[in-house]
Design a binder for these strands. Structure first.
Length: 427
RNA sequence: GGAGAGAUGGCUGAGUGGUCGAAAGCGGCACCCUGCUAAGGUGUUACACGGGUUACCGUGUCGAGGGUUCGAAUCCCUCUCUCUCCGCCA
């Protein structure tokens, strides 16, 4: 969430930045105008309320004194009785104003950094670099490869759960597990991450902390009859591990990696990627999460991105890095690099990881702060990135490892994790 | 699911209507003292918001929300969470 003081002190810059990402800033009824207005109203009510409270406290103290000394205080008590009624009224108003302000503020996205390129959507993203040599020969889509090998079972997935669910069999199931294990080992052993295992169900506060709520409730699976949700990414539980706490500066940076299943309703994406397992309601992901000093966030984003890239390089999967333009940025992000892996069947790059800096946006929402020396606690900067999405990685391996005889070559680094299996083939 | 107990500052833990933002201890910080296997002394040490150039002032916060009262950490109601025992279960 945006710093409340900035709404008053840096209104013009904020408005310009928000407008670049297509946020609702135009006109007197925009979220932006409302938030500024509600801030004024709320503060005015609060000042008034506090004046009355000060009066109440002063006289109540006096009453206490008089009573202790055996004096008569009935006149003061009568006065206060009236004041108490007014106080109650004002309290209600002030609370309503505060709630309203919060509600609107929580729906304002993170303003992009100045360095983020202009643009409206995916088309305007900027390619930063490429790695590897994409194959240009004819390769069947992963779902055909997988079905022919009998390792991807879309029919069963649809029958037992619905569309956008897949059953993995045999070598594919093992490959899924191998990838999780391989990525976690790599980030823990070589990149120095602290591994955590976390709940896949979280409460509303947690979902709000990282920015999924209140605005994107439609994208989430909610548990019936409970104020609880299935996580869409490990970012949510892992970042919120530190919600409402004050860290010592010496603890930073904190770097966690975690494997979790992820659940997404894919509400707005009917008709996209309907075949195959590129877009699923449930998928596995290894996630990288950083908590760091605000001034270190950009530097950290480069580091985090390189950690995700290392996975693709080890697996020998060609990819490119693109920087998202302002209009394509996620709600909570101030800057994002997407990693896109080469899919030969589509002859194009597809997103397999998204690495973002959130600045202090999430730190402020989730109440994650740090303190250095005697200074006031400040919101931490948070970052995260997929390292990587397992399902899409599996798709990429099937297609990029595909041989004309229909078999799949397993990358060197995965063979130990596959129990020595070097190739997936029809027996 | 049943029965009971509890939730106070970074931690432990006192506090049953006014002098309590809250004893004490630990931890942290600052200064002082001491030359010996780091001990002692003194002081200081929550967060948020609002006001003021600073010292500072005001308000709120003792799990959350509501109520009683001139006044609530303290009394009442609701909820959440934790712990113990029983049941069930991986």
């Amino acid at each position: 969430m945006i710093d409340r003081k900035d709404i008053r002190q840096h209104a013009a810059e904020l408005e310009a930045a928000l407008s670049r990402r297509g946020a609702d800033v135009v006109g007197p009824h925009s979220a932006w105008a409302r938030v500024a207005e509600l801030d004024r109203i709320q503060r005015r009510l609060k000042t008034e309320l506090e004046t009355l409270q000060a009066e109440r406290n002063r006289v109540s103290k006096l009453i206490g004194q008089k009573k202790r000394q055996g004096e008569d205080a009935s006149r003061e008590i009568a006065d206060m009785s009236q004041l108490a009624d007014r106080l109650r009224l004002l309290q209600g108003e002030a609370r309503k104003a505060e709630e309203e302000f919060e509600r609107v503020l929580l729906e304002l996205p993170n303003p992009p950094l100045d360095s983020v390129p202009d643009g409206a959507d995916e088309e305007d993203n900027v390619e930063i670099r490429r790695w590897g040599h994409p194959r240009s020969d004819q390769v069947p889509p992963h779902f055909e490869i997988g079905e022919r090998l009998g390792i991807l079972d879309f029919e069963s997935g649809a029958r037992i759960a619905g569309s956008r669910f897949t059953v993995l069999r045999g070598a594919a199931a093992r490959l899924e597990r191998a990838l999780i294990q391989f990525m976690l080992d790599m980030h823990v052993d070589r990149h120095g991450y602290d591994e955590v295992w976390v709940p896949a169900i979280v409460n509303r506060r947690t979902m709000t902390g990282t920015g999924q709520l209140p605005k994107f409730a439609d994208d989430l699976y909610k548990l019936e009859g409970e104020d609880a949700y299935l996580i869409p990414t490990a970012e949510v539980p892992v970042t919120n591990l530190y919600q409402d706490s004050i860290l010592d500066v010496s603890q930073l940076p904190i770097r966690h990696c975690a494997y979790t299943p992820c659940f997404r309703r894919e509400a707005g994406s009917a008709g996209r990627d309907v075949r195959g397992m590129i877009r699923q309601h449930q998928f596995d992901k290894v996630e990288l999460v950083h908590l760091t000093l605000p001034e270190r966030a950009l530097e950290d984003l480069e580091t985090l991105t390189s950690h995700a890239e290392a996975v693709l390089q080890e697996l020998g999967l060609p990819y490119r890095v693109v920087e998202l333009c302002a209009g394509d940025l996620g709600f909570s992000a101030q800057k994002t690099y997407d990693l896109e892996v080469w899919l030969p069947s589509q002859q194009r790059y597809r997103e397999i990881s998204s690495c973002s800096s959130f600045g202090q946006f999430q730190g402020r929402r989730a109440g994650i702060r740090y303190r250095s020396g005697k200074g006031k606690p400040q919101p931490v900067a948070t970052l995260n990135g997929s390292g990587l999405a397992i399902g899409r990685c599996l798709v990429a391996l099937l297609e990029n490892g595909w041989q004309p005889d229909g078999s799949i070559e397993i990358p060197e680094v995965l063979i130990p994790y596959m129990g020595g299996l070097q190739r997936i083939a029809n027996e």
